[in-house]
Computed example of a mutant assay.
Amino acid sequence: MIRLVIVDDQALVREGLSLILGTQPDLRVVAELPDGAALLDLLAADPAVADVILLDLYLPGADGVRILGQVRSRLPGVSAKVLMLTTVGRAADVQRALAAGADGFVLKDASGAELAAAVRGAHAGVTALSASAAELLWPAPAGTGAADSGARLRLLTGREREVLARLGRGMTNHDIARDLALAERTVKAHVSNLLAKLAVSSRTQAALIARDLS
């Protein structure tokens, strides 16, 4: 069970995220907090209270990146992964959050499935970006689109397409290997091959293309 703490100054957002994520059988919301100060107090009292923290980028008093820096510097006993959340995304915001030690960045326009996948990915140690956040960092080159993605997808073998679909759900190599009954080294080879065929440099970029499989 992955234990979650949600930090957002808007009660409606906190309640909505809690409702969406709380329906997942492997996720449990253990606290909903309105600001960074409350988070620091909670973690100081119990550094192991959460496995993943969903932290709003824009908070009253101090923004989420500053709070994240305080968690990392002042509370070394906290091992929870931190996913940054925001409504309006800019590439600079994503880069700043990741540079500060965030384990992922999710825009609030993400679907419930994307959000849950990001939580699972962060918990597993994979840098988790929702599709819209990833597009901020790696916008599609001019002149490319569905036809281009389709042409690249046709280069993949059936097994590589199966692996790609699972990358799109935020699964780790270990999880993919277990799901497809393969050796983990075989999955790594498939990932390397499909990245080359798709002409991308990261799993997250490949996951964006995976949406064309759905």
Rank of each mutant, 00 (worst) to 15 (best):
L164C: 02
A99K: 13
T186A: 09
S202N: 03
A189W: 03
E15C: 13
L57S: 11
N173G: 09
L12Y: 08
A45H: 05
L55N: 11
L136V: 02
A128Y: 02
P139M: 06
F105W: 06
A207L: 00
E160C: 07
L19E: 12
L75K: 09
A207D: 03
H174V: 12
L43G: 12
V7E: 11
V82A: 12
A110R: 03
L107V: 10
I2G: 08
G22Y: 13
A48V: 04
L33D: 06
A99D: 15
L54C: 12
S130G: 13
L4S: 02
V187L: 09
V13P: 05
R74N: 15
A147Q: 11
S192W: 06
L153I: 15
D26A: 14
G145R: 07
D26L: 12
L83H: 02
G61T: 00
G77L: 11
A181H: 05
T86E: 01
A181Y: 02
L153N: 14
R66E: 15
A11H: 11
N173M: 00
S18P: 09
D8E: 15
I209D: 07
G64K: 00
L55S: 12
V126W: 05
R178C: 00
A146Y: 12
T157W: 13
A110I: 08
R66G: 10
L107Q: 09
A206T: 08
A91M: 10
G168Y: 08
G101Q: 00
G61F: 12
G22L: 10
D148F: 12
L167G: 08
V187S: 13
G112D: 14
L42D: 03
Q95K: 12
L75V: 13
A131N: 02
G61C: 14
T23E: 14
R185S: 13
T23I: 11
L43V: 10
H123V: 01
A99T: 12
V94W: 01
S79M: 03
I53F: 05
G112Q: 11
V187E: 13
A48T: 11
E32W: 03
A131T: 05
G121D: 05
P76V: 02
A128Q: 08
L137N: 04
I176R: 05
L85V: 00
T23G: 09
R154M: 15
M84N: 10
I6G: 07
R169L: 15
L42G: 06
A142N: 12
L68F: 00
S201K: 14
S79L: 03
